[in-house]
Write a protein that binds this DNA or RNA. Structure first.
Lengths: 139, 139
DNA sequence: GTTCTTGCAAAATATTTGCAAGACG
DNA sequence: CGTCTTGCAAATATTTTGCAAGAAC
């Protein structure tokens, strides 16, 4: 029943263990980015250190990417299947200040920046803060 | 000898204590943003909690602003004299992945972002990662 | 059987708060 | 005097590592 998950991992050269399948499945079911403490709560059977290393492995092999949304806790979201985590794959993240949820906005082009001379650029992290559509509807 | 510093603080309705003058002076001498642990190292006489609350007071009164550069440690940089910390005062930050220094790039316009419907926007944090001119010269 | 993964424990780092003593107006 | 600030201590939260047992290939 985990063929899809296992394929995803094997494609990224990650050994598909049961634990990793559980984490990946959970992350695929979410619309918002996840944090280590959040995974810890939802998967009580799993150890913090295991989850930490699972996320690290996923990140190193470009199955997920890390998001620093300013909430004080690192979050992680799935990469697209074709993701190479290079400039073309960069996208904006939206952080809801009400529900603390963080979402990838893949459709919005990332802003261009021209740096002062002497500076070289490797990537741009843009976090848009505001209120998401869910929270706006509740109000 | 602290007239300038004291004026800056009084202008922001911050009671100008000796400790605060020391912190403000140190921050004014820096070109890069500072963190709490960094201040702790450089001002051995000062207590962590005091520095923490000093930074908090400075931030609340818009003498400094907070930067989350993805390094895992919050940083703080001086606001401009005229700063009101609203949309007009927002600017890009550059984070050097080599020296871990973080700088305000006031001259570069912040990118515009159009969100999906239902989302409302309160602010945009953009951190440009790369190598600063100092570190590029060393190479 | 060799390598990789997991779980338990604990360290390391950063941030934050309580409380009593002290400084300031 | 009353309020604000500081220093010491400790709590909290998050991230990270060591090591031995277990699983995968």
């Amino acid at each position: 029943m985990n063929e899809g998950l296992d394929n995803k991992m094997e494609f990224r050269h990650i050994r598909p263990t049961a634990m990793r399948a559980i984490v990946l499945k959970l992350m695929m079911e979410k619309t918002a980015a996840t944090s280590l403490p959040e995974l810890e709560n939802e998967l009580e059977s799993a150890d913090k250190a295991t989850l930490y290393r699972t996320l690290k492995t996923f990140e190193q092999n470009k199955l997920i990417h890390r998001i620093n949304d300013g909430s004080g806790t690192l979050k992680y979201a799935l990469c697209k299947d074709s993701c190479d985590c290079d400039v073309e794959d960069q996208h904006i993240h939206f952080h809801c200040t009400k529900c603390n949820g963080t979402f990838c906005l893949n459709d919005i082009s990332i802003p261009k920046v021209i740096l002062p001379s002497g500076f070289s650029l490797s990537g741009i992290d843009t976090v848009v803060n505001g209120v998401c559509s869910n929270c706006n509807n509740d109000a």
